[in-house]
Write a protein that binds this DNA or RNA. Structure first.
Lengths: 182, 182
DNA sequence: TGCAGCATGTAAATAGTTACATGATTAT
DNA sequence: ATAATCATGTAACTATTTACATGCTGCA
């Protein structure tokens, strides 16, 4: 049921089509959840049947009619109920960490390349989030209304920092291995 | 196919029954992957059929016969091939972070309680990993053989530290909310 | 007496991904 | 020309969880 509530949270900020919601749930756009479009369409349909969301159908020329979804009072109430119940602590599921436990089975240079790739990826992502933090929430904008979204953003930034710290420890060791290899 | 390789990595350290492997993959035991026992049994069966693992059947009185699995040469070779191909970067999928973006919809005291619960949980987990790091890898034990497992452990510790840092930011804000609430 | 641990497995359900399908428009 | 964007959806598959099933032993 997680995706269901993730969508409700997304719709809290305003109405949107399944397509738009799906875009936000694509790899990397939002930090904390990922979902493909068929999953989102089917979940929206279920919630429309339950009356948690409603949609306005807008016909378009040369495109399928778009459905603009918004929360209903029922949906908002269900969301509020969920908000007060603890969320499950998710398992990690990162094969890269598993791989490291037996890193001696890999080719050091390839492992190093993989870490450098991850580091690059993480730095790019982090830059985006830091940008948002600076333009939206820093300095003047200390409106308590934005405090929660900002704190949520902090989760991403802090996590990325941690990953980078770990990557640097890996790189340090792997570089010694690659040097002695040649 | 991730679970498959996670099991192979696990079997690298030595033989084991499905039951034992499943225990290690339970919530919280290993840091980086989670799996239930039916999933592990079925994956072991598939890999036995492919010849990546083999097992020795040991009859027992009053218990079902146990199967002690170990890697075959084929399994080890497949694992080595996998080691040299980059692992996918996993999505995060933590509803707690999502929840924070609309934290104003929750009851502050309940949200605070949830954060404190997570903090406690994380500190307990981290203590276990730090213990392992100190007893197994610190001081005298600078054997390069243990360098990779140690680095893998560092991923957990560094990640936990990051979570704790974030939790403290949340707690600081939520405490002001709870105070002004009463 | 009742629960945890050992040890296997099957069956059913839910969650999530990938491929297929359509079709016009705009940018490269 | 080709790919990306808009916008929906279905179908098939893979991954994962939960419930059911068995049965003995040792502990509180």
């Amino acid at each position: 049921m997680s995706l269901r509530y993730a969508i409700l949270v997304d719709l809290c900020r305003g109405e949107g089509t399944g397509y738009e919601i799906a875009k936000r749930f694509q790899e990397g756009v939002g930090f904390s959840w990922k979902a493909s479009h068929p999953q989102i369409y089917s979940e929206l349909k279920k919630m429309a049947d339950m009356g948690w969301v409603e949609f306005e159908k807008i016909e378009q020329e040369s495109k399928p009619a778009k459905k603009i979804y918004r929360l209903t009072d029922d949906g908002l109430n269900s969301l509020k109920l969920w908000m007060d119940t603890p969320a499950e602590i998710p398992p990690v599921r990162d094969m890269f960490i598993i791989k490291m436990t037996v890193g001696d089975l890999a080719t050091p240079s390839k492992l190093l390349r993989e870490v450098l790739e991850r580091k690059k990826f993480t730095m790019e992502k982090m830059a985006i989030f830091q940008q948002i933090e600076e333009t939206h929430y820093k300095n003047d904008n200390q409106d308590p209304k934005y405090k929660f979204p900002q704190l949520s953003l902090r989760a991403a930034i802090i996590t990325f920092e941690a990953h980078l710290k770990w990557f640097d420890e890996l790189i340090e060791y792997l570089e010694t291995l690659v040097k002695s290899e040649s």
